[in-house]
């Protein structure tokens, strides 16, 4: 039984490799230490200047990120250090250690403790992420009827704007309390808590505007909930996050936050335009039905919500 494992170590190529490895490790470590400041954006989810839930997710994420860096660094550094330190050399004999119960209990409990800490922290943070915020003083004075959702409580004082968001291949439709509707871009007032009832008409979609908080699946047959509150006017971009067919990549979502008065004017105008269009369509259907004896309701039916 020949020993096939030739002691190939200690040859020049191995030591250069070791030096190279050490250099790479040092560079990586230095990068890790310097990176967070420079690459904060690359290492954290989208947040800031959007809605509070996105910011809270971001701060929860950052805590986990710190712990994750420590754990990964500890494992990788120990691993590489052991691989270098305990390489085979002539005359070295491996310690025949089969385990150490106390040590094993210690690190099992250590791992569990980290997770207990993360659990507690998550549940402390959760209400700020999940529960809709109170509308601001300058927000929309819309009462909005109170109703019980599966899980998401209503914002305090019940003051909010509720928008029904429906995904369909490959566009989002937004229906406002006054039955005005819009596609693609949702116009909302600033300073107002906006709650969303997220639904789907055909296949599963997922509503997601990164700066306005996490995503919620739009599953046909279910109503899902989320919320956001924007303090400053601006446009927020996102897109469908659940594969919904060939044009999934182009199912964009946009939220445009505008001052309250502008919102009120917009939603009233939208309503007026839609009513006018419906009336026109109905008139045309009537005249067609009268003139050509065609069955009614075939022309522009899908556009009405």
């Amino acid at each position: 039984m020949g020993d096939r494992i030739a002691p190939a170590l200690g040859t020049p190529s191995a030591s250069t490799r070791r030096r190279l490895l050490a250099a790479v490790l040092l560079a990586a470590l230095g990068g890790l230490l310097l990176a967070p400041a420079a690459l904060a954006d690359a290492l954290t989810p989208e947040s800031g200047a959007g809605s509070r839930n996105a910011d809270e997710i971001d701060s929860l994420y950052k805590l986990v990120l710190i712990i994750a860096f420590l754990v990964i660094a500890a494992v990788e550094i120990t691993l590489v250090a052991f691989l270098i330190r305990y390489r085979y050399r002539k005359g070295r004999v491996a310690a025949q250690i089969r385990g150490n119960t106390n040590l094993e209990i210690a690190w099992t409990s250590g791992a569990a403790l980290i997770l207990v800490f993360l659990t507690v922290f998550t549940f402390i943070k959760l209400p700020a992420i999940k529960d809709p915020e109170r509308s601001g003083a300058g927000g929309l004075r819309a009462g909005g009827q109170l109703y019980a959702s599966v899980d998401q409580p209503d914002p305090p004082a019940g003051q909010r704007l509720n928008v029904e968001v429906t995904g369909q291949q490959y566009v989002w439709r937004y229906v406002y309390p006054n039955n005005a509707f819009a596609y693609d871009t949702m116009v909302v007032p600033v300073n107002t808590t906006v709650t969303l009832d997220v639904k789907a008409q055909d296949v599963v979609h997922s509503w997601w505007i990164p700066k306005l908080g996490g995503k919620v699946d739009a599953t046909p047959g279910y109503t899902n909930k989320t919320w956001f509150k924007i303090d400053r006017a601006g446009v927020y971009q996102g897109q469908c996050a659940e594969l919904c067919g060939r044009n999934h990549a182009n199912m964009l979502a946009r939220v445009r936050a505008v001052p309250v008065q502008e919102y009120e004017a917009w939603v009233a105008r939208q309503k007026k335009d839609i009513d006018a269009a419906n009336k026109g369509a109905a008139a045309q259907r009537e005249s067609q039905a009268a003139g050509e004896q065609q069955p009614a309701g075939t022309a522009s039916e899908p556009r009405t919500p």
Binding site: T122, L126, I129, S206, K215
Partner: peptide, 9 residues
């Protein structure tokens, strides 16, 4: 809550 941001990305 973090998954809500990272899911499906």
């Amino acid at each position: 809550p973090i998954n809500w941001q990272l899911h499906d990305t």
